[in-house]
Design a binder for these strands. Structure first.
Lengths: 215, 215
DNA sequence: CGCGGGTTTGATCCCAGTCAAGTCCCGTGG
DNA sequence: CCACGGGACTTGACTGGGATCAAACCCGCG
């Protein structure tokens, strides 16, 4: 099998994998660490489009040609595999199964963004936070990052979560405080103590997409 | 070339192409008419995830297996082509270019959903409406649905737009009224009279991130 | 003429944004 | 060793944008 990897990338917390507006010719898969994809608005607003966890594909929009519509920023030290987008055609010609997996991933991503849209559009602050914490915990658990005690690493700042849920920093903080008996997030680790109550709050039917095929 | 079409579907305004929770084994491409993809929350909330215009692929998430995460509802009489998702593998094996195009479309969709997320998260009511009207008009113009006078067909209800932008119906109405000098939407047709002013309001352009220090 | 769905408008309320301090903690340097 | 500074997190007081409630209004239609 041909090797599509075009190198491995290491980035430190706070650094960018690529910037909004860049004409990047790569896309990536995350191996270790966590980060965010952010979009900036002309007025200074900052939206975290989604979180980047190990196993995610990052920057697939690069196949659209043109400037990247968002920046990818690391929140903890990250390791990613880099691929050249112009060799994607080869992949599609020579490795239909992997191509299919790629589409599958894109569809899964779309599925998740749809849920996020519903959250931003319909849920209040408490519901948003409950939803986000559940999703994050579930996702990280699924990729085996949970410790014995059931807590998962979450290296983000409250500001990141605030910008992800479209809430102000202060209100995010206050909302996290209200959720404290159900979930705690401190020292970069998130623990869910009452999943049922959280799900109740979040109005989640918590149906996640099935396991993905390997790329 | 093999024929993947598995029929043509006609649906009337208000009817569903598929319902949330359905185990559909099809996906579609829209040929005529317009509709919405909606998600429902347990508390009765309703979010319009996006609008369906001619040329769009609908229900590609079906490749994820399992229940559909949203419903597709027609707002005007629609005509769509139906495809069987289980034959997608064939497509990937026999027609890499079309497979690539499919991924391209999925990526474009993801790109758009990302913009929507930024809108719901960061923009206020006036900015949201301005953004939505611009996007819709631009999109419909691009597929040649604009008349001589520059107006495009928009068969939705104010409720649909409200649910798309996460605003209440009444506030949507009032906001549309405030935008009246810049854009009018009546009798199912949308006309933009002052594109520049609208874009100004919507804060669209967003080329480069403002010089906020990283991290 | 009455009815129902969609649109418009006014009055009131409250969730979340903003402003402003203050605390905790860690790294740096005197 | 402590003083200092800066970044993240907390907390309280105030404000306002948008939700909610409640009526009209404006059709097309039976």
């Amino acid at each position: 099998m041909m090797n599509f990897r075009a190198g491995e990338v290491h980035i430190a917390p706070g650094e960018a994998l690529y910037h909004e507006g860049d004409e990047t010719s790569y896309f990536y898969t995350a191996r270790e660490g966590q980060g965010v994809r952010v979009k900036h608005l002309p007025n200074g607003g900052r939206q975290v489009v989604n979180f980047i966890f190990p196993g995610d594909v990052v920057g697939l929009q690069a196949i659209l040609e043109g400037a990247a519509s968002n920046s990818a920023i690391a929140a903890s030290p990250m390791v990613l595999c880099r691929f050249e987008k112009r060799r994607l055609h080869e992949l599609y010609r020579n490795s239909p199964d992997r191509a299919y997996a790629l589409t599958w991933i894109a569809a899964a991503e779309e599925h998740f963004l749809g849920e996020t849209i519903a959250t931003l559009g319909q849920r209040n602050a408490l519901q948003r936070m409950a939803w986000a914490l559940l999703k994050i915990h579930h996702r990280l658990s699924a990729i085996g990052l949970a410790r014995e005690e059931g807590d998962v690493p979450l290296p983000f700042k409250q500001r990141d979560l605030a910008d992800a849920m479209g809430l102000s920093l202060v209100h995010t903080n206050k909302t996290l405080a209200r959720l404290r008996p159900l979930a705690t997030w401190e020292n970069g680790r998130l623990r869910i103590t009452n999943k049922e109550a959280l799900a109740e709050l979040a109005l989640t039917d918590c149906a996640l997409p099935p396991d993905r095929p390997l790329l």
